[in-house]
Simulated scan of single mutants.
Amino acid sequence: MITVFGSINMDLVARVLAIAKPGETVLSRRADSFFGGKGANQAVAAARVSGGRIAVAMAGAIGDDAFGKACRDNLAANGVDVDGIRIADEPTGCAFITVDERGENAITVASGANMAVHTAQVPGEILAKTSILVLQMEVPLAENIAVARWAKQMSARVIWNAAPVPAGAEKGAVADMLAVTDLLVVNEHEAITVAAMIGDNAGGDYLVAASRLAHTYSLTCIVTAGAKGAFAVDADGTQIHAAAPPVTPVDTTGAGDTFVGVLAYGLAEGRELQDAMQRACIAASLSCLTAGAQAGMPSRDRLEATLSA
């Protein structure tokens, strides 16, 4: 089983010619709503490529409101086990996203119920079956650390997507999280930032940052680099590269989450890291062809058809 412990949001998306600069107002013709939250996105991505072959469970929190009910129903409709989702006293998380004509995005997240997520809400019977635990940074870091330690005691592998990197996170807490991480997934900027947070200046080179993080904490650091694909660095310095197929993106929102979810599924079904990364890169590229974080996430059939082609 893959268990995703993390955020559940409703995304409100506006398309603009250019993303607003500080103090600037830009106009958009309309705003559309999409299901999101990095945790929910990663759970949906994993469940879609699984097609029911491996169970995917979501543990998170929603508000007692229409957005929360819709988000829970959407996860269930995508084949995700929702027994670990609880109702909090805060409103359901909401993300405000602007997407420019090149497909680039800027995102502001109102966390709401996501800050009320607790390790204790994860059903013990679910964690006992978990082979892969997936974490992100849209819920309290202390809860991530606690559930990761619990999962490690149960012999699960921990994938930590350190995104978004929290401003002001304490060095000790970040180090504690890295100590219970098997695979750290970051983009180029996040790799450098996380390395700096634990006192390692990588000189602006994300592969140097990845190498030092991997060596210091005996983990595998995977850096997603957009059109350049993804790079993995092991603790012994071994590097792996997976290429990304060229696409003309409509919306890059959710591409990183697609990568993480499909990577988690690939590892859960026993694939080698190179193969799992390659499939994740292709899935992430496919997700960029449709607006919305989850809308373009490929099914198992679509991913297999693309691989065959």
Results as ranks from 00 to 15, higher is better:
Arg212Lys: 13
Ile97Gly: 04
Cys221Asn: 00
Arg149Leu: 03
Cys71Asn: 13
Ser33His: 06
Ser211Ala: 14
Ala293Asn: 08
Ala77Ile: 07
Asn161Ser: 12
Gly51Asn: 12
Ala18Gly: 03
Ile54Cys: 15
Ala110Phe: 13
Thr290Leu: 13
Ala305Pro: 00
Ser155Thr: 11
Asn201Pro: 13
Phe35Ile: 10
Ala268Gly: 05
Ser33Gly: 09
Ala280Gly: 00
Arg86Phe: 08
Ser218Glu: 11
Asp234Ile: 01
Ala230Gln: 02
Cys71Ile: 10
Val16Pro: 03
Ala291Asn: 07
Gly6Phe: 04
Thr130Asn: 09
Ala255Thr: 09
Gly172Ser: 05
Leu303Trp: 13
Phe35Cys: 10
Thr181Glu: 01
Asn187Arg: 13
Ala88Lys: 02
Val250Met: 11
Ile62Pro: 02
Gly79Asn: 15
Ala14Trp: 04
Ile240Cys: 10
Asp83Trp: 06
Asn74Leu: 11
Ala268Tyr: 14
Arg212Ile: 08
Thr98Gly: 13
Ala167Val: 02
Ala235Lys: 14
Ala191Lys: 05
Ala148Pro: 01
Val82Pro: 07
Thr258Leu: 10
Leu183Cys: 00
Val56Ser: 09
Gln274Glu: 13
Glu188Lys: 04
Ser50Tyr: 03
Val247Gln: 14
Ala163Phe: 00
Ala110Glu: 07
Met177Tyr: 05
Gly103Ile: 05
Gly37Ile: 04
Ser155Gln: 15
Thr193Ser: 02
Leu207Gln: 10
Ala167Lys: 05
Ala293Pro: 12
Gln294Gly: 00
Thr252Pro: 10
Val223Gly: 00
Gly103Val: 12
Arg30Glu: 15
Val186Leu: 06
Gln153Ile: 08
Ala151Met: 03
Ile62Met: 09
Ser287Tyr: 06
Ala210His: 04
Thr253Val: 14
Ala57Asn: 12
Cys94Met: 14
Gly261Asp: 04
Ala45Asp: 08
Val44Asn: 03
Ala293Gly: 09
Asn144Arg: 08
Val122Thr: 07
Asp205Glu: 11
Ala244Trp: 15
Ala235Tyr: 12
Ala20Phe: 01
Leu213Gly: 07
Gln278Phe: 03
Ala66Ser: 13
Phe96Ser: 09
Cys281Arg: 06
Ile198Gly: 00
Val262Tyr: 13
Pro298Tyr: 08
Glu188Phe: 04
Ile192Glu: 06
Ala76Val: 10
Phe67Ser: 05
Met1Arg: 14
Val158Tyr: 02
Ala14His: 01
Ile192Trp: 00
Val139Glu: 07
Ala110Lys: 02
Gln153Gly: 12
Asp81Cys: 08
Asn161Phe: 00
His189Gln: 07
Asn144Asp: 12
Val139Ala: 11
Ala232His: 02
Val56Phe: 13
Leu267Tyr: 14
Ser218Ile: 01
Arg279Gln: 14
Ser131Arg: 09
Ala106Glu: 15
Ala47Pro: 12
Gln239Lys: 15
Ala225Val: 02
Gly93Pro: 06
Gly23Ile: 06
Glu138Ile: 05
Pro164Tyr: 04
Thr25Met: 05
Ser285Gly: 07
Glu170Trp: 00
Phe231Cys: 01
Phe259Asn: 03
Phe231Lys: 01
Ala283Val: 02
Asn78Trp: 02
Ile85Leu: 13
Asn187His: 07
Ala148Phe: 08
Gln136Val: 09
Phe96Glu: 05
Leu184Asp: 01
Asp236Asn: 15
Val56Ile: 15
Gly52Ala: 12
Tyr206Leu: 06
Leu184Ile: 05
Glu90Lys: 09
Phe96Lys: 09
Asp176Ala: 15
